Each structure stands twice: as structure tokens, then as C-alpha cells.
Amino acid sequence: FEIPDDVPLPAGWEMAKTSSGQRYFLNHIDQTTTWQDPRKAMLSQM
């Protein structure tokens, strides 16, 4: 499912887009990137 862009990312995360428009996520805390939206895990725990 798609999460609306107005749902905030967890602390330390940033959303970016590739030149082709694909979204990816940067974790500044552990210096990693992922295609997986970290908000999905956050919302599934609620």
C-alpha cells in the first residue's frame, strides 16, 4: 500500500527520488538506503 507523503518519516530518515522518479529512503542514523518505506513498519506496529 502507498503511504501519503504527509505522513512523517521516523527520526533520522529522508525520502529521495531517483532520476527516473522512483522513491527511496535514506537512513542517516546508520548510513543506509532502502527501497522499503520505513513508515510501513511503523504503521504496522500501531
Rank of each mutant, 00 (worst) to 15 (best):
F1Q: 03
E2S: 15
I3N: 07
I3W: 01
I3M: 05
P4F: 10
P4A: 14
P4Y: 07
P4L: 15
P4C: 10
D5C: 10
D5T: 08
D6C: 06
D6F: 06
D6T: 15
D6E: 10
D6A: 07
V7C: 11
V7N: 11
P8A: 11
P8R: 09
P8T: 11
L9M: 15
P10L: 01
P10N: 02
P10T: 00
P10E: 04
G12I: 01
G12W: 03
G12P: 05
G12K: 03
G12A: 05
G12M: 05
W13N: 05
W13V: 06
W13G: 01
W13M: 02
W13S: 03
E14D: 13
M15G: 05
A16G: 07
A16S: 13
A16H: 07
A16V: 08
K17D: 13
K17M: 09
K17V: 12
K17Q: 10
T18A: 04
S19C: 06
S19E: 12
S19T: 11
S19V: 12
S20M: 11
S20C: 13
S20Q: 14
G21F: 01
G21R: 03
Q22T: 07
Q22G: 10
Q22A: 13
R23M: 09
R23A: 09
R23K: 12
R23W: 09
Y24H: 01
Y24T: 02
F25S: 01
L26K: 11
L26S: 04
N27M: 00
N27T: 00
N27Q: 02
N27G: 00
H28R: 09
H28L: 07
I29V: 13
D30A: 10
D30W: 11
D30Y: 15
D30N: 15
Q31W: 04
T32C: 13
T32F: 15
T33C: 10
T33M: 05
T34A: 04
T34R: 02
T34K: 02
T34N: 03
T34W: 02
W35E: 08
Q36H: 14
Q36I: 14
Q36K: 14
D37G: 01
D37Q: 01
D37P: 05
D37Y: 00
D37N: 01
P38V: 00
R39H: 01
R39F: 01
R39P: 04
K40F: 11
A41K: 14
M42A: 14
M42V: 12
M42T: 14
M42I: 12
L43H: 15
L43A: 13
L43Y: 07
L43G: 14
L43I: 15
S44E: 14
Q45M: 11
Q45H: 15
M46P: 04
M46I: 04
